[in-house]
Design a binder for these strands. Structure first.
Length: 324
DNA sequence: CATCAGGGCCCTG
DNA sequence: CAGGGCCCTGAT
């Protein structure tokens, strides 16, 4: 079932994100668990892309600066791509990495904020991003639930291995996502054999609803947040924790914090109050009052900055919160 | 060896 | 709205 595809056709176009744009802060999120579908090395980022039923390879090379952004986008494919589909891919990448949003108001408003200012200054131009589609993200939130990081990674990689393809392009080999059909076809027993446990049923139900076209991402992107949220919560297996990640990362809604899961609560308590545990209500009130309609984006900056710092030197209180 | 919680969510009462 | 159950793992 694991097929290896060589993507020989190559196309190149230019991307001009709205300045300021921070390339590495946008394409690489140190707080996320690693997956074999992406690779990041300094100024170059690769990922697989399952798009319009094609297996594609993506490479982005940072050629600009934060204030004058410019990115070379390479698209790799087995077969030839029309100009139309190339333009579609371009727009999709621009959306997924939130390249066209104007954040100048955000930076201006909080440049003197004692907590946020130093961080937005350092990560000026960083965007919230999801390199994957809504369907793929629901899979992520499903393997995330009730599991330690290590186990989530195992489940995710098992899925890649069993249902995805290996894509070879630009001398890298990356895992690709699969079409929902392959999960629909797979017996629940087979998924359970991959040690997905009770999630097997959830993944099958999700695959079915996406296959039916119940959730059209292009349509959803245009919905106001409350309606979008309601719709997303109707996906089986998506609850208050997952929906929040999706609203923010997949749909770039910057003001969606209403529920603080225990793990985040501990981290926000340290970051904002320098104490072990603050109540969720206090945290919620604090961030909404302080950062208004930007509160989720503000937290994202603080969160990712923390995990960047972790890569440079271990932060002991954080290490204790990360269950491997 | 048994027990339990872990980056949740569904379902029941 | 509270609480039990769910798969599997690794910690105790």
């Amino acid at each position: 079932m694991v097929k290896k595809l060589i993507l020989n056709k190559q196309y190149q176009i230019e991307l001009f994100p709205h300045p300021p744009f921070n390339f590495e802060g946008t394409v690489f999120k140190p707080s996320h668990f690693p997956g074999s579908d992406t690779l990041f090395k300094g100024k170059i980022y690769w990922q697989s892309l399952r798009f319009r039923n094609r297996y594609l390879g993506i490479k982005m090379v940072n050629k600009g600066t934060v204030e004058v952004p410019y990115v070379d986008l390479f698209i790799f494919s087995v077969s030839e791509l029309s100009d139309d589909i190339i333009q579609e891919i371009k727009r999709e990448i621009e959306f997924r990495f939130d390249m066209l949003s104007n954040l100048s108001e955000f930076y201006e408003e909080f440049k003197n904020d004692e907590i946020l200012g130093p961080v937005t200054n350092q990560w000026r131009g960083m965007r919230v991003s999801s390199h994957i589609s809504l369907y793929e993200y629901t899979v992520i939130t499903t393997v995330l639930q009730n599991a330690t990081v290590k186990r989530s990674v195992q489940m995710q990689e098992s899925l890649f291995h069993r249902y995805g393809a290996k894509l070879v392009f630009d001398s890298v080999e990356l895992s690709s996502y699969w079409s929902p059909q392959s999960i629909i076809r797979a017996p629940e027993k087979e998924l359970r054999a991959l040690k997905l446990g009770y999630r097997a049923k959830i993944l099958k139900k999700q695959a079915k609803s996406f296959e039916k076209g119940t959730f059209n991402e292009d349509v959803l992107r245009n919905l106001p947040t409350p309606e979008l949220k309601k719709k997303l919560l109707s996906i089986y297996g998506i609850g208050p924790a997952s929906v929040q990640y999706i609203l923010f990362e997949v749909f770039k809604r910057y003001d969606v914090l209403e529920y603080i899961p225990p793990w985040e609560q501990k981290i926000y308590s340290r970051l904002l109050f320098n104490k072990e545990l603050e109540s969720a209500e206090v945290i919620l009130k604090f961030v909404k009052k302080r950062w208004g309609k930007w509160h989720m984006l503000a937290l994202h900056y603080l969160f990712e900055n923390l995990f960047w710092r972790r890569r440079e030197g271990k932060i002991s209180w954080l290490e204790n919160l990360i269950r491997l």
